[in-house]
Amino acid sequence: MIRTPTRYHRPDSAAGVVEILAEHGADAAVLGGGTWLLPMMGRGERAHHHLVDLRGLGAESISRGEGTIELAATATYEDVLADAELCAAQPALAAMAAGVTGGRQLRNQATLVGSACHQTPSSEAPAMFAALHAEFRVVGPAGERWVDTDSFLLGALHTALAPEEFVAAARFPDTPRVGGYVKVKIAAGGWPVATAIATRPEAGGDTELVLGAVQEVPLRIGLGSALAEDGTVRAEEVEATVAAQVTEPWADLQGDAEYRRRIAGPVARRAVERLQGGAA
């Protein structure tokens, strides 16, 4: 049972959402899938007298614009997995969505944008948004603005959102990227201790490497000399390259800072090897 006597709102327009958020400020919270927020309210870790459900907006879960893919704030992991074209174009995204903690039920309920808005360091979606070069459509009283992932994710449980703002969608370039995705969890029901996403434009270009769960926010690795002239990565150089860049490792009950710092390199190398082996 949620401890705070809470009123449920389900506006049918973005303006309606903003109106409630503006009126109640931090006493209102946006409800995406609810898989983070509702248990926290049940445990009394968060208290809001108003919940604003975005499902009343009726947004199409996944839509295609000019050269972009847009995920509505209500798009679930299963919505992503049901889009065969998207999964084929972004295999690392598909691999992440298929393995998210909590099983099929969670994938039916939890949303990717909600995960980014909650911004738990050990969550998988924030780093994936970084790897996809996503930006978030932030809607507030002054209108809407697009905020790129690196500017949006500011720290543990900390984003660029103001209390009267919400994220309506995330979009990323509709550029097929071959990818390798690797994560380490201590138990199937636990949270990642490290994730690594290695991707490369299918049409050719430089490999990119993003790590999740090892620092407060996703870590973009500068590949430097590990990047070969043809855009591929010298896998044997990845571990040392990564180790030098994990400077402020995250620590939680799943793994301490030293453990995260030590495994980041091998996890990254494996993601590169998966990318180069052709398996996400």
Partner: peptide
């Protein structure tokens, strides 16, 4: 038609 964990769902929704 979809399996869900009912502890993560508001009845009002």
């Amino acid at each position: 038609g979809k399996i869900v964990k009912s502890c993560l769902q508001l009845t009002a929704a």
